[in-house]
Structures are given as structure tokens and as C-alpha cells.
């Protein structure tokens, strides 16, 4: 195996962790409510700007660590606001939710352009993240290793939350059968709201990671959100395992394709790969077995 291949393999892993962080929130709320929040990409953007502002207040090495909870809470609050004012009222109309939240996304992007300028702001990564390691003849930048580690941590925390806590139990119940869960006394609207905030928070956290890799611009979210949508399409309804698997597959595919073709052709190939994939498994990587016809 040559160095280029190993290098792209590593880039694929880091791309996959970004896709995963961006897609987790989408997949969770899609599983629960069957709606996609098109403004989810702007949660990444918001996280990036919050990281930038945190570093203005707290420069120094620990600023970026502090930025993570700040971005999480800020994006979660914004997500909760969008959910409770807009999405909740449209929950029976998935396609209309798509369009209305696209409107929100446009407004947020333009708002960021007016507030912070179109060129974008630079977040200076602390010194302990600017170095790199060399292994097997491949240079591994610390920032990208950090991102992979954070994605793994978030995934682990989410898995614990869903499998071991009471709120996780409620979420799984609503995911399996919304009507039955509601009939047995679960406040499904509150579960929706909680998961939506959580997913937006994770996206905000992903925004901090993006800020480590490049400047934060008003449309920084757009370049990651469309692959993240494809991750959701391929993952299977509301399945964390499926979302993780498809994020890894698509991240690796995009990075490895770039060995042979340029970025734009790789993007086309990525889409074709997803379309080919649903020929084989239209239900996604992981399908929840159900007798429901119109799930």
C-alpha cells in the first residue's frame, strides 16, 4: 500500500467523522418526526462562529475546549427555537417542512453575512492542535485526529444516552411506534423537542471542528450538509448504527475517489454511489423490521 492511499484513508476517516457529526442530528429527528431540517447546515455555521467568539473572549490554549460546550448549547438553543416555532406546526407535512426550513437557512446565512462579513473569520487552533504525527510514512495532523476522537466520543455518549437512560428509552419507543408511545402516556412532543435540540447541539459541535480546519464563512455548512443528507438517505430510518456505517462508507468513498479523479467528479461519483446503493438496499444500511406499510 502506498502513502497516497494511506493518506486518503486517513482523510476519509476524518471526513467521515465530520459527516457523522453533521448527520447524527438529522438522522435522529428524521427517525422520530420524518422531517428534515434544511437549516441544519447553519447549525454547523453557528457553531463555527460561536467558537470564533469564544476564542475572542478566552484566547489561550483552553479556548477551544471551552468553545465546544458554548457551541453545543448555542446551536441547541437555536435548534429548539426553530423546532418549537416552525417545525412543530408542520410535522404532518415533511416536504413543506423541508421548504420552510430552507427559508430559515437562507435567512441565517444572510444574517451571518451581514453580521460577520462574507469573507469569513479565522479561528486560530491552539498550539497543541497545530502539530502533526508521522505514522507509516503518512502525516497525521493533530487537528484531524482530534476531530476523529471527538466524533467517537460523541457517538459513544449518544449510544449510552439512547441505550442506558430513561430519555433514551422514550426516544426508542417513539422511534418504533409513535402512536403507541403516545397512547402509553409518553409526551411525544417533548421527546421530539429534546432530540431536536440534542441533534442541533451536535451539529454546533461539528461547527467547532470545521473551524479548526478552515475559515468560518456564512456558507461553511453548505459544503458538508449535502453529503450529510446523503448519509441520512443511505443510513436507514433513525438508526444510529446505520448512520454511522453510511457516514464511514461515504467519507471513505469520497476521499478514496479523489485519488483517481478531482473533487467535483468525486462528488458526482458519490451521488451515483448512493443511487446505486439504494438499488440494492432501498431501506438503507440498517432497516428497522416492521409490519407497517407506510412507515
Amino acid at each position: 500500500m502506498d502513502a497516497l492511499f494511506l493518506n486518503q484513508l486517513f482523510n476519509g476517516a476524518s471526513l467521515a467523522s465530520l459527516y457523522l457529526l453533521a448527520a447524527l442530528g438529522l438522522a435522529l429527528s428524521f427517525g422520530l418526526m420524518r422531517v428534515i431540517n434544511m437549516a441544519h447546515g447553519e447549525m454547523l455555521m453557528l457553531g463555527g462562529y460561536l467558537a470564533w467568539m469564544t476564542l475572542l473572549v478566552v484566547p489561550g490554549a483552553m479556548g477551544i475546549i471551552l468553545a465546544i460546550p458554548v457551541a453545543f448549547i448555542g446551536a441547541a438553543a437555536m435548534g429548539g427555537f426553530i423546532q418549537s416555532t416552525l417545525i412543530r406546526h408542520l410535522s404532518a407535512r415533511p416536504l413543506d417542512t423541508l421548504l420552510a426550513t430552507w427559508g430559515v437557512s437562507l435567512i441565517l446565512q444572510q444574517g451571518a453575512r451581514d453580521l460577520f462579513g462574507a469573507i469569513g473569520v479565522e479561528v486560530r487552533a491552539p498550539e497543541w492542535l497545530t502539530g502533526s504525527f508521522v505514522a507509516f510514512g503518512v502525516t497525521l495532523p493533530s487537528a484531524r485526529l482530534f476531530i476523529i476522537a471527538i466524533a467517537a466520543l460523541v457517538l459513544g455518549a449518544l449510544a449510552l444516552l439512547l441505550l442506558k437512560t430513561r430519555i433514551g428509552l422514550l426516544v426508542r419507543a417513539v422511534n418504533q411506534d409513535r402512536m403507541m408511545a403516545s397512547a402509553s402516556g409518553i409526551d411525544v412532543k417533548r421527546v421530539d423537542f429534546t432530540i431536536f435540540c440534542l441533534g442541533s447541539g451536535v451539529a454546533g459541535l461539528a461547527g467547532v471542528m470545521l473551524a479548526l480546519l478552515g475559515p468560518v464563512t456564512p456558507n461553511v455548512g453548505q459544503s458538508y450538509i449535502i453529503p450529510a443528507f446523503l448519509v441520512v438517505v443511505m443510513g436507514g430510518l433513525g438508526s444510529i448504527v446505520g448512520t454511522t456505517a453510511s457516514a464511514i462508507i461515504l467519507g471513505l468513498f469520497a476521499a478514496l475517489a479523489q485519488i483517481f479523479v478531482d473533487v467535483s467528479v468525486a462528488q458526482m461519483l458519490l451521488l451515483m454511489f448512493v443511487i446505486l446503493f439504494i438499488q440494492v438496499r432501498p431501506q438503507g444500511v440498517v432497516a428497522v423490521k416492521t409490519r407497517q406499510l407506510d412507515a
Binding site: R34, I36, L98, F229, L230, V233, V265, Q267, L271, V274
Partner: peptide, 19 residues
């Protein structure tokens, strides 16, 4: 179909314009 189709068409328009 449905939401999935909308998301795939959006990816198509991104891929086409980038190409």
C-alpha cells in the same frame, strides 16, 4: 420517494453545478 427523493435531487443539482 418523499423526503429521500428531494434530498437526492438536491445532491444532483450540487453535483451538476460543481461539475
Amino acid at each position: 420517494g418523499g423526503t429521500y427523493f428531494a434530498l437526492i435531487t438536491q445532491a444532483l443539482s450540487l453535483a451538476f453545478a460543481t461539475l
